Simulated scan of single mutants.
Amino acid sequence: MCLYLTTTCGDPNSPAALNAEMQTFILLRQHPFCPNSPTRTAPQAASPAQIALLIWQTQIPLPHPAPYIAPGYAVTGKRAYLEIHDNPSLPPQHFNQLGYDITVDAASTYDIIWGDGTQSTGITSAGGPYPNGNVSHVYDNTGNYTVRIVQTWHGRYTVNGLTGTIDSPLTTEGTIQGFPVHQIEAVKLRAPAGPAPPGRCQRR
């Protein structure tokens, strides 16, 4: 078996290109070039940063936010407490690629689009229910709103005790569709006219 390599155009930092380069490097350890191969130059060994980027883009299962606002609706002028039901950080995950022991972890921030023309950005908390939740919003008008959560993930990698940043943020999203906001109106009730209850005097 021998390797027949050709040159293709495209982004050299894309997951497909990085993966092809890594696979070529691995195969060249086992097989020579074919005599008629257009390309007979071996690719350079991938750096830990490139390997970490490929792992980050193809092998890390990122969670998606699952937002909820109890009890399923809000009232104008009152705080609505958002619960994102998601972990804002990713625990370390370990990989072995091309002889490197690489650990990848991540932290995230939330951008919250409340649906009424306002948003909250750079939030680091997943919120919580009333009364202790720390992510809330006050709606001024009634209606049905789409609440959208964009979670931006920033990865890091560690190789041989050295830590680097993966320069390729990833995003996951979650929404609440048609979130209703109501208005409470005070209603004044009048007791119907009639005889006084037993044991009470009527004024004449």
Rank of each mutant, 00 (worst) to 15 (best):
G117F: 03
G155N: 13
G155H: 09
V181H: 02
S89K: 07
R29I: 00
A66C: 08
S108L: 00
L18C: 00
A193K: 09
R203C: 06
A80W: 10
N160M: 08
D86E: 06
I113D: 13
T163S: 14
H85K: 01
G122S: 05
P88Q: 14
A186P: 01
R200I: 00
A42S: 12
G99Y: 00
T39D: 06
L53T: 15
P12G: 06
N96C: 00
A186F: 04
V104P: 01
I123A: 07
P88G: 08
N134R: 00
G99S: 00
G155P: 09
G199M: 10
E185L: 13
G161N: 10
T6H: 15
I166M: 07
Q50A: 15
S37P: 04
N144K: 15
A74F: 10
T7A: 15
V147T: 13
R40F: 05
G194T: 13
T76P: 13
I149W: 09
V75H: 12
F25S: 04
R148M: 14
T109E: 10
A45Y: 02
H182F: 14
P63K: 07
G178K: 07
A126D: 13
Q151L: 10
L3V: 10
R190M: 01
G117Q: 04
H85N: 15
G117S: 05
G72P: 10
D167F: 11
N36M: 06
G155A: 13
Q30R: 08
L82S: 11
S47I: 05
G72Q: 14
Y139T: 04
P169D: 11
R156W: 12
D116M: 03
Y73D: 10
R40L: 08
I176M: 08
Y139N: 08
G77W: 01
A193W: 07
S37Y: 06
E21S: 15
W56Y: 07
G178A: 13
F95N: 03
Q202T: 09
D111E: 08
L98D: 11
W153T: 15
I51R: 14
S120I: 02
V104F: 01
A66D: 12
D116I: 03
V135G: 07
E185I: 07
T109P: 00
N87T: 05
P15L: 03
T76H: 12
N36G: 05
A106F: 02
P180M: 09
T109D: 09
P92H: 08
L53G: 08
Y68K: 10
A74E: 11
A70Y: 14
P65A: 15
R148C: 11
Y81P: 02
N36P: 00
P91D: 05
P65S: 09
Q23C: 01
H85T: 01
I176A: 00
D86W: 03
Q59T: 07
D116A: 06
G161E: 05
D167T: 14
G99H: 01
Y100C: 03
G164F: 12
T165K: 13
Y130C: 03
I55S: 10
G10I: 04
A107T: 11
S47M: 06
N19D: 14
K78W: 04
T24Q: 14
A45H: 03
H94F: 12
E185Q: 12
Q50G: 09
P65I: 15
T163C: 11
S14L: 07
A20F: 02
Y4N: 14
S89Y: 07
H137W: 10
